[in-house]
Simulated assay, not measured.
Amino acid sequence: MFHDHHYHNHHLPCLHCYPNSFIRVVQNLIERCLLLRMNQDDCVIALARHASIHPLITLTVWKELQKENRDFFQSYLHAISPRTFNYRPFQRETRFRRGNSWK
């Protein structure tokens, strides 16, 4: 799945002192999960195990990204679904946006 060195480059800022910086790091790590074609549960487990990020935080950031990128996530989740019988490589046709609504 993941190797620890994917996360050691990230020094997590203090969530309470620098919430926006902390959330940006979590967003970056979620994007790495997406590049590895992981689903939400796998991403939550990986970030908890390798980056010590509480599952609730990962879920909250994931859901916010999903809200801001509905088309992207709909295509992504369809592409990684084991029920998808017609294999088509996943392509990022929709631009992935990171919101600045974290305040």
Rank of each mutant, 00 (worst) to 15 (best):
V25Q: 07
H54L: 01
P55N: 09
H16E: 13
H6Q: 11
R92A: 13
Y7I: 04
F22T: 03
R83M: 12
N20L: 08
T94C: 11
C43K: 02
I45A: 06
Y18C: 06
T60G: 04
A48S: 10
V26F: 05
P19K: 10
V44A: 03
Q40I: 07
D41T: 13
I45V: 11
R95V: 13
F73A: 03
F96M: 07
C17V: 03
H5T: 09
R92V: 11
C14V: 00
S75E: 15
H5D: 15
S21E: 10
G99Y: 05
N86P: 00
H16G: 00
R32S: 09
Y18F: 12
Q66P: 01
R83V: 08
R37P: 00
H3W: 09
Y18E: 10
W102S: 05
S81R: 02
T84Q: 15
N86M: 07
L56D: 13
M38I: 00
V61Y: 00
C14I: 00
W102T: 03
L12C: 02
W102R: 08
Q74H: 13
S21G: 04
T58L: 01
S75F: 03
P19F: 04
K103R: 14
A51F: 06
T84H: 10
H16D: 12
V25L: 05
I23T: 08
S52W: 07
D42L: 06
S75D: 15
R92D: 07
I30Y: 02
S81M: 08
N39W: 06
Q27D: 03
R97Y: 12
Q91W: 04
R95G: 02
E68G: 06
F73T: 08
H11T: 08
C33V: 02
N86L: 13
N86R: 09
H5V: 12
K63I: 01
L65E: 04
P82H: 08
R24T: 04
V26W: 01
H10T: 07
N9C: 04
I53G: 01
L35T: 05
N28Y: 03
K63V: 01
R32N: 11
R95T: 14
L34M: 12
E68H: 14
L77H: 12
R97L: 11
I80V: 12
R24W: 01
P55R: 09
N69Q: 07
